[in-house]
């Protein structure tokens, strides 16, 4: 099956979630990776190292409307039957728009693709991750899908694929939403997806001071701080740390949930963790149903002791 993979780039580096799609695309048949912009040279080289042919569409103005127009042309040029993107904010904006232009539908947040005879079955979560749906495109329709990060393994380096650079003119009237300003409010780099240890806090922390203990424990274990939505709404930490349906999907070796009750929207983002420790004062908290170790107790009492104990073991 001819498959097109859209590789998002930033600061001339390909986005990791997009690189994860390359192996799957080549597995399904003829894959092509497409990069769009005026500064993709290094990214194109990096992508080609995974053995996939790379198409660079060189265009001056880069915004979502122009990228969309370029993707329509790339899909036609490569006669692709399947177009894959990473389920980033950009991917989730572009995929349904591209699907509409190709007169087809779209599947969001795919976590698995399998062959069923001639056709493909796409698995995706719904209802906050409580249910998995097996979806199929109607016969004769092109397939457009966004894939959730971490669903596929990154390809191994192989003999470099060919790089074709094509410059395209996008008509000025393609740009309907004019970007006038961007504001960067979150400057910290929070690598939750790549973390081996995550210590996360929720509403049950009670105050910023106790959330500070979550941060201290994370630091002590060489891990990253996570949070559920209430902790972000309380202002204890920025939304770059959010884990769950509307945040990041993570799968660390160790996940320590502090004062997190375990709403489905949060659990669906961390259920892939290897080992889960949960601290909650409510002995019936749903988070305990998924935890390897459940500690019934208050975060402000348990966390200082835990920090002390781990520090003593390290010494």
């Amino acid at each position: 099956m001819k498959t097109l993979v859209y590789i998002e780039t930033k600061n001339n580096k390909p986005f990791n979630g997009c690189l994860e799609l390359i192996h799957e695309a080549m597995d399904l048949g003829e894959g092509t990776a497409v990069l769009i912009g005026n500064d993709c040279e290094d990214s194109a080289k990096e992508v080609s190292r995974y053995g996939i042919p790379v198409l660079v569409l060189d265009t001056e103005a880069v915004c979502q409307d122009t990228v969309l127009a370029a993707l329509v042309s790339a899909a036609a040029d490569t006669q692709s039957e399947l177009i894959l993107m990473s389920a980033t904010q950009t991917g989730k904006d572009l995929a349904p728009r591209l699907a509409a232009r190709l007169d087809t539908g779209c599947i969001t947040d795919v976590v698995g693709i399998r062959k069923d005879g001639e056709s493909l079955i796409f698995t995706r979560p719904a209802y906050g991750g409580a249910v998995l749906e097996d979806m199929q495109f109607a016969e004769g329709k092109k397939a457009v899908a966004t894939v959730r990060g971490g669903s596929f393994t990154k390809a191994e380096a192989a003999q470099a694929g060919d790089i074709t650079v094509k410059s395209i003119e996008i008509p000025a009237d393609a740009v309907k939403a004019k970007l006038i300003d961007t504001a960067v409010e979150i400057t910290e780099l929070v690598n939750l997806e790549g973390a081996e240890v995550i210590v996360a806090g929720g509403r049950g922390c009670g105050d910023a001071q106790t959330f500070g203990l979550v941060e201290e424990l994370a630091k002590l274990l060489g891990g990253v701080v996570g949070a559920s939505r209430p902790a972000i709404e309380e202002g204890w930490v920025s939304r770059a740390h959010q884990i769950g349906q509307s945040g990041k999907i993570v799968s660390p070796k160790l996940y320590i949930a502090c004062g997190i009750s375990g709403a489905m929207q949060h659990v669906s983002g961390m259920i892939g963790s290897d080992y889960i420790v949960a601290i909650n004062k409510d002995e019936d908290a749903p988070i305990f149903d998924t935890a390897d170790i459940s500690i019934v107790g208050r975060c402000e009492e348990i966390l200082p002791l835990m920090i002390e104990e781990i520090r003593a073991r390290k010494a």
């Binding site: 599947i107 249910v131 097996d134 979806m135 459940s294």
Partner: peptide
């Protein structure tokens, strides 16, 4: 253009050990 062919529930995790001590130090 897209149909749902089948629904499944994700694999469940087994709940592990529950620690409920009177004393936080013991827990």
């Amino acid at each position: 253009a897209v149909r749902c062919m089948n629904y499944q529930e994700p694999a469940k995790r087994e709940a592990g050990v529950k620690i409920q001590e009177k004393n936080a130090v013991d827990a």
